[in-house]
Design a protein around this nucleic acid. Sequence first.
DNA 1: AGCGTGTTGTTGACATGTCACTAACCTAGA
DNA 2: TCTAGGTTAGTGACATGTCAACAACACGCT
Lengths: 151, 151
Amino acid sequence: MAKPRWLTEHEEAAWVGYRRMRVLLDLRINRDLVSQSGLSEQDYDVLSNLSEAVGQRMRLGDLAAHMCWSKSRLSHHITRMQDRGLVQREECADDGRGSMLTLTRKGHDAIIAAAPGHVASVRQHLIDVLTPEEIDTLAALTHRVVARLQD
Amino acid sequence: MAKPRWLTEHEEAAWVGYRRMRVLLDLRINRDLVSQSGLSEQDYDVLSNLSEAVGQRMRLGDLAAHMCWSKSRLSHHITRMQDRGLVQREECADDGRGSMLTLTRKGHDAIIAAAPGHVASVRQHLIDVLTPEEIDTLAALTHRVVARLQD
DNA sequence: AGCGTGTTGTTGACATGTCACTAACCTAGA
DNA sequence: TCTAGGTTAGTGACATGTCAACAACACGCT
């Protein structure tokens, strides 16, 4: 720490750009989604991952790991979603500690209804703004950063 | 919306990667910073932008715009930082509505002390994980997305 | 001057996420 | 068997951010 390697101009531009994009993009996509479907992006992610799981059911811990969420965050959020009737907690047969998470009929309908609009929003504000090369670079780069952070 | 263009595999990878990186990277960098300096990343950004401003003072609205924050968010945050003695609100001479934001001595010292460790953290978890090409691509891509969102 | 409209910043109510702690349970080794 | 230590999930207190509403002021037009 005695001799910090400050960011170069290019590095600074990437870092600042990332942080700005994070704020604006997330806010915008979230707003689009809420106004169109009544779901937040967090709700959408939970429902989406759950609907793609085998049997449309998942352990809480597995879902948290898959989404890179803390267990606490997921637990709080699931409580709220359960109150709204979108998902359902069930006992876990083979592990007394665990909970299985399942989709309710209402949750299933909600994700089906929300998906087209959400994809359109993601396209409009991010994907369709990028070139195919940028998309691949972004995918590669984010996956590498995530992998490093998951130790 | 009748016929949604779903994301291709590559597009999906970029989108999922971005969202995972967002969660993990921000959490990690924030934790590093808090444990090393007692500042959150938000605190750091405010102090950093303020210390680079001419006269180390800035209008609240200008700072909010520059950081891509909502005015409300900044106002709340400044109140908290002011309570901790890091910044100071002052009357704005040429506009009775406005406030000027200034750095206190304590805020100045805090950013100076925190900077080397924070840069090291950003390098370790993001910048140094990327190639120079990826950094430039990330900068270009994020700036374009931000520009589109700012209309 | 007087009025309407837009800006600037603040506030309160509320939603969300983190952290630290706890309870309940599982598993392996003495 | 039983006990220590790890795992799974839930909880409460707190920090943060959003949204909508508001107050105070600026500015342009008549």
